[in-house]
Design a protein around this nucleic acid. Structure first.
Lengths: 340, 340
DNA sequence: TTGTAGGCGTTATCAA
DNA sequence: TTGATAACGCCTACAA
């Protein structure tokens, strides 16, 4: 089968008794070559174990098969799932994924986009809608499908697959109020734009219900962790011992808060209701199971790739698409207060 | 500065008043061109905003700047940290990372390696030492630095950065015995080769201490999760209600077991000791904090890249290196049994 | 439907 | 130290 040295189009062509360009066409647009020739070519390809040389193709076309993906973190479970969806969707296609990590830094994001732009990518998938003006300029002027994921933008640079974190937070907060909690608080880490939008949702619902109080808000710009969730709850309890429920900006914090509550013998959900965000697997397994807001992480990744490939297939002629994939509040025992 | 169209070597050469190849040399081997020419070239590069075209370079040299990374999962936190180390180490260099996901399937691994091999990568980083014979053949014959990570191999195909999971499991198991536990059990998911090696370590220590019992072993090939940890502990307790400590193959299972113990009002560590593996952040935050074995995930990623780049710099003339990065048992309250 | 010529941007080779 | 020439493998444009 496959020899050791690289097989070229010319060698396949020689074996099949056609010209190189015919082999090229048989591979890329099987429809336009005759059935007979196609079969001969396919046989030769198999026999020689031919694999196209992407560098040569790129050099000739000026267009790569790389889908650039720009995310703020690769260790965060949320993005791990998104990336997983992206890789699954790309599998079996001719595309490759190139991952860029911004570390939540807009300027690093700008740098990554600059690099990607200069490489003529097949498509670009970027997390969030809070790019710098310079980043947005690049995205707007680049000649390939662009997809913003995670959130919904009123004014997207390209396609958009996500959900309203503001609405999601409103639902979660409303749930707390409905459960009868009246002194609700908020725990937030990192406080990136997405987090802040969730906080807005929480704040508005709490204010509308007349249960908002600044003293029950504990936030930090420190990156999120379970340990930090414990600390934030400790801080919150110091400031506002009467808090009876918390909306945590993510599940790590929620789990940390649960552990801290256990340490203090605070009964969850009776003395303290806890709601997380993202619905990572672990929170549904907790004791008590933690209420959270599921967001379709994996699907966002998959559909972003779909939009890229469709955009390429239609040669950029398809209109901008905004897909709201929604969210789902998953109420569990951690907020199941005994109703009087 | 940078115009919109791509600047080529020839344009830089024209502006600098030299030939293209001289510019090429001035960029790649500044040492061999005259000071004067070098300065002129540098000025021209800056003025035009020249960026080399990697595709053309690759086509001409037959050697890419891609470091291929083959891991079994991208959602698993363990590999997320490894990959994070890889990306951090690659940053600022001329290399790029290409991630391949085997989904714990040896045949998918083979396929990925086949693709990578055909792309003349700059280096290859593969997780584990349990490749198929065909995979090992490819790794052995490929003309670039190869690094196996996660484990130590007696007979590595290239470099090796990892630790002995067998030894690590022995330590953890010995710790349980030292704490006075006498009816120790094992919880294992997925049961891939690495997991099995950890089980061997556990088994041998337990047998040597005369505390091994088949009935206290609960394993499944199902992928690991926190929920699964709860189920496995439930299964274990059904088979062997007298178990007094468990070594969990990873932290997800350990956390799930802790939750299940809480549900059953089993006191940890007194009635049940729990030890995890990997030392993910969450286990140290748990209540009680869970004992685990830390492994240097991030460092393995970083050092693997170092070995690749060194191998390239030395043109493959450096000897095979095996780096044992070790592990660290982090004893916490979940195994701090009151000693009588 | 198939083929021919030329070029994509860079580097290796050989020569000056 | 610098330069001319010829690849590298594929694709676009045009021709047959």
């Amino acid at each position: 089968m496959a020899g050791n040295k690289r097989v070229t189009l010319a060698e396949v062509a020689a074996l099949a008794g056609v010209s190189a360009i015919t082999v090229s066409r048989a591979i890329r647009q099987p429809g336009i070559v005759s059935e007979k020739v196609k079969n001969r070519v396919e046989a030769a390809v198999r026999e020689l174990g031919y694999v196209p040389n992407p560098a040569a193709r790129l050099l000739a076309t000026g267009r790569s098969n790389v889908i650039g993906v720009v995310i703020p973190s690769i260790t965060n479970n949320v993005f791990a799932d998104v990336v997983s969806g992206i890789y699954d969707a790309v599998e079996g296609t001719d595309f490759e994924v190139q991952l860029g990590n911004t570390r939540y830094s807009p300027s690093q994001e700008e740098g990554l986009l600059r690099i990607f732009s200069s490489q003529r990518p097949a498509g670009l998938i970027v997390a969030g809608i809070d790019q710098t003006a310079a980043s947005l300029d690049m995205l707007a002027s680049i000649d390939c499908p662009v997809v913003q994921i995670m959130e919904l933008s009123a004014d997207p640079v390209g396609h958009c697959v996500g959900l309203s974190h503001y609405e999601a937070a409103r639902h979660a907060s409303a749930h707390l109020v409905e459960q009868g909690y009246r002194r609700v608080g908020f725990l937030g880490a990192r406080m990136d734009p997405r987090t802040q939008r969730r906080f807005s949702g929480f704040r508005e619902v709490a204010e509308a219900a007349g249960v908002f109080d600044e003293r029950r808000v504990c936030t930090t710009t420190t990156p999120s962790s379970v340990t930090l969730g414990s600390q934030l709850l400790a801080d919150l309890l110091a400031k506002a011992p009467d808090v009876d429920a918390i909306f945590c900006n993510n599940d790590d914090l929620a789990l940390g808060a649960l552990f801290e509550a256990q340490r203090r013998r605070l009964s969850v959900p009776d003395q303290l209701g806890i709601c997380g965000f993202n619905d990572l697997e672990m929170v549904s397994a907790a004791e008590p199971a933690i209420t959270s807001v599921f967001i379709p992480r994996y699907q966002m990744g998959r559909q972003a790739v779909d939009l890229v490939t469709q955009g390429i297939a239609s040669d950029g002629e398809n209109p901008t698409e905004i897909r709201d994939l929604g969210f789902e509040l998953r109420a569990r025992r951690s907020t199941a207060r005994k109703q009087d």
